[in-house]
Write a protein that binds this DNA or RNA. Structure first.
Lengths: 338, 338
DNA sequence: GACGTTGCTGAAAGCGCTTTCTATCTTATC
DNA sequence: GATAAGATAGAAAGCGCTTTCAGCAACGTC
């Protein structure tokens, strides 16, 4: 394994010149650079990462801390997000280093990663409302970008989608079609996107003079099982919903099963609108009845956040971005049955 | 940000002693150690990772290189696998560093990661038959564990599940129930698990004297869409299958839709067996008709591979493990209709 | 011919740890 | 009381790179 010294000796040059040649400094003679590059290739030289980090103080890596709660569900969307993130960062030669930590101790984990120089910044996933991680990282003045929002008192970088607007429009659509009893299958109550969607729905309801209906609103885990259970329950109510809003395709899958098993038809008896993160393996347009959705590809979030974070690390200031969400109307929405 | 020197000065000790105290060497006085530990906590000292790596030559990190093909689908199972892996490694204070690379250049990426000292070992995912990565890493004599197998000429560490046996047993079950025309929805033809399952099915077929049926066997992408398309095609054949074997739950989801849209009933008209990786968000027991499955939780693979890899890095030799696969019989399998 | 310039390269000082080797002080041993 | 052994701590040499500062030609300029 050739190191810089070996390469320099081989070339009869100093380590300084070789280092400069390889790192694209202007002050090195063109011929010398050529020679150095050729020799580096020939000796298969690769600069040691730890040494370089130690000398430059930069890790060229960003961190992700996954919640390690054992009972917790692993979001299948995460793979798609990660794909977008990793590809974009890889193109800039930045690694992503991942670890897991229980939520209670995650702040300590972030601090350790920051203060040991393992990473130059973080991507914060699954933010909760008033997430303590954000305030802490702001105190540390360490770069990070949040995937979602969390309502901090100071400015911070985030990429979010217009959850509020999307679910307001979805609700409006249902209202315009004449629905009065609209069920909601939302995410965990303290997840920020749940809060945003809740408020979008409420806004639309108000503008149509539709009261809240607690019995038809559920906030909890986003599994197929939960979707099925809660939808079944709602359908057995004396006044069942004629439409349902789902916060994820997985919930919609469960709702679909409940509707079907109740002997009802999607779009005919019950309208369904789901949020769609644009997963590649399972598409909402391919449901038995193609789903009307609010759509925002989650992979784009990964791509964009990668850019925002490298900008931030390079000192280019806080950015925020709220991506628009498309409302795509398909066969699962129709006026309520008479 | 306190460093070792500052801490040593503060204590009036040498860096050497402080370092030893903090790293659990026996040759340091018990009182001294206490003092050092207290001061370290007080000054919030954390050893710099890069410096430590440079000094010890160990990265305390393992690498994962994701295939970066843009058209490629991101496997939702990957999130579950990663969860198991990351948690186990985090408990041992080992980071996982991830990057993405196109398949053609992935070998170069592995080499770069290995020779720059970024990681101490690799987890190889999605192995193909005779995967060139394995031979290359063996040549480099760099530690790695494969998730799956790939048929190299030299011994290497892997964790696999008994794909061959599982699909043999699944096929046998169908044969015993009296099925003669068994369709197969398998994965990409060059993925190793596809090969293994193919051969398990063939073995069971032979033992029941059942000929191969190319028109009823499909190998390709594991998406809901593909499952639907191919199952629909098979059902429109003059002699449609009375049973279908699916290599993933996502394919089964598509097959289910096709069967339903053909006006047929799962378990009644068409038996379905799927492989089940035990994803937490969508469970095969919760299909409208609970699915008979070959089951092997993919998260366990992550957990176990983490252990195998750290063992390997610590010089504890090559291990191989083939996990058994349960065959869980539920309502989706029955004798063929008369 | 003295004097800035410009272009290129080398010496050497870190970056923050670990670890070997050495030094000192105690204590046990005869 | 001399000596060996044991316990503890420090000095210093690296680990492999980057980067500052200095140096040396060669060159044009007055």
């Amino acid at each position: 394994m050739a190191n810089l010294k070996a390469l320099a000796d081989h070339l009869g040059l100093s380590q300084a010149t070789v280092s400069r040649a390889l790192n694209g400094y202007e002050t090195v003679n063109a011929d010398t650079r050529k020679r150095v590059e050729a020799a580096a290739r020939q000796l298969n030289y690769r600069p040691n990462t730890a040494a370089r980090r130690l000398a430059t103080g930069r890790a060229n890596a960003v961190g992700i801390v996954m919640p390690a709660e054992d009972g917790r569900l692993v979001d299948p969307h995460f793979a798609d997000f990660l794909a977008g993130l990793t590809r974009t960062l890889a193109a800039r030669d930045i690694d992503i280093v991942m670890t897991a930590s229980p939520r209670e101790t995650s702040i300590a984990t972030y601090r350790r990663f920051a203060s040991t120089g393992k990473v130059d910044g973080f991507v914060i996933s699954f933010p909760k409302r008033n997430d303590p991680r954000i305030e802490d990282l702001l105190d540390l003045a360490f770069p990070f970008v949040v995937h979602g929002q969390c309502g901090a008192t100071r400015p911070y970088s985030y990429y979010d989608i217009d959850n509020e607007g999307a679910f307001a429009r979805a609700t409006e659509l249902l209202c315009q079609l004449g629905h009065q009893r609209i069920g909601v299958l939302n995410g965990e109550p303290d997840a920020m996107f749940t809060v945003q969607r809740r408020s979008g729905i409420a806004r639309a309801r108000r503008s149509f003079g539709l009261p809240e209906d607690p019995a038809l609103t559920v906030e909890g885990p986003m599994t197929e099982e939960a979707g099925f259970r809660e939808m079944s329950r709602m359908l057995s109510l004396p006044l069942p919903p004629t439409a349902i809003l789902c916060s994820s395709m997985i919930l919609a899958l469960g709702a679909q099963r409940a509707i079907r098993e109740a002997g009802l038809g999607i779009g005919r008896d019950v309208s369904v609108i789901s949020h769609d993160d644009g997963l590649s393996s399972l598409k909402t347009e391919n449901f038995s009845v193609p789903l009307t959705v609010t759509r925002a590809p989650i992979r784009q979030a990964g791509t964009r956040i990668a850019g925002m974070l490298t900008d931030l690390i390079d000192g280019r200031g806080v950015q925020t971005h709220t991506a628009p969400v498309d409302l795509i109307v398909r066969g699962s929405t129709a006026p309520p049955p008479k």
